[in-house]
């Protein structure tokens, strides 16, 4: 087995004093692994991946990303963030910057890459997500699917070791989901480590090495996609699958 890139050990997180959102999470992700996390809303799946790059802080246990532990030390967190790209449900592109500027921002201001070099690399990423011709438009001039592809390209600009996807297709019109999934599948085939919170079970079947099912802040079950879908172990998983695949 190849070496781990992300390790959760006994991670617990609370919102406020009473809401126990992550409970005793143990999870190891190996380099190049593609993981899909699913589960009902409120089960803690988004919170889990947002803990990986320190957008949420956990109160107990440890999270180690590529040898760096996520702690109160903002330097450690910023180091991790440079190595972990993230794509959000609501795209979160910067509306006051052009597509190209959205992509060059981090390389220029975090990576200290010269402008010309950053733009050259940004164009390569835009070609990768098949949207190079929109480089000089503003995000709000693009369709939802195009915006999400720009967001993926933006996350790729720092050449991350891990990509996190937080329900990347949930805010899209049905017609646009495919173009985003196609880009994600292509990315998956290029061997980057991916953790993806999604309900696109077709995507899970096509590319995931492992599917994780979460409920009430816990990992209920995890397995290879074929096993997961055809032979779920727990009653809760069967119930969930019957609801999302049932029609």
């Amino acid at each position: 087995m190849s070496e781990p890139i992300i390790t959760f050990s006994k991670v617990n997180k609370w919102y406020g004093n009473s809401f126990h959102v992550l409970r005793d999470i143990d999870l190891t992700v190996t380099r190049g692994e593609r993981i899909v996390i699913c589960g009902p809303s409120g089960s803690g799946k988004s919170t889990l991946i947002r803990c990986i790059n320190g957008l949420e802080e956990h109160q107990e246990g440890s999270i180690v990303v590529d040898g760096t532990e996520i702690s109160d030390d903002i330097r450690a967190i910023e180091k991790v963030r440079r190595e972990v790209g993230m794509v959000f449900q609501q795209f979160n592109l910067f509306p006051h910057l052009t597509v190209l500027e959205n992509l060059t921002l981090a390389p220029m201001w975090v990576g200290k890459t010269p402008k010309a070099e950053a733009e050259k690399r940004a164009m390569l990423q835009l070609e990768r997500v098949k949207i190079a011709e929109q480089a000089h438009k503003y995000p709000l001039q693009l369709s939802g699917g195009q915006q999400q592809r720009v967001a993926i390209a933006r996350a790729l600009c720092l050449t991350p070791k891990v990509m996190l996807f937080d329900e990347p297709t949930s805010a899209l019109d049905p017609e646009m989901i495919k173009e985003v999934l196609d880009v994600m599948i292509e990315l998956a085939n290029q061997g980057i480590t991916m953790i993806c919170v999604t309900h696109e079970m077709g995507f899970a079947k096509a590319v995931a090495d492992r599917v994780i099912f979460m409920d009430q802040g816990q990992i209920v079950e995890q397995n290879k996609p074929h096993e997961f879908f055809n032979n779920p172990q727990s009653e809760r998983t069967r119930d969930f699958l019957s609801k999302i695949l049932g029609h």
Binding site: N53, G54, L55, I74, E78, R81, R82, V84, G85, M86, F88, Q90, N92, L93, F94, L105, A106, W109, V110, A151, R154, A155, L158
Partner: peptide, 15 residues
Amino acid sequence: IPKGQVEAAQSLGLS
């Protein structure tokens, strides 16, 4: 300004 803007910037490693 939506929280997502700050989160997106943070996730890119901006201080």
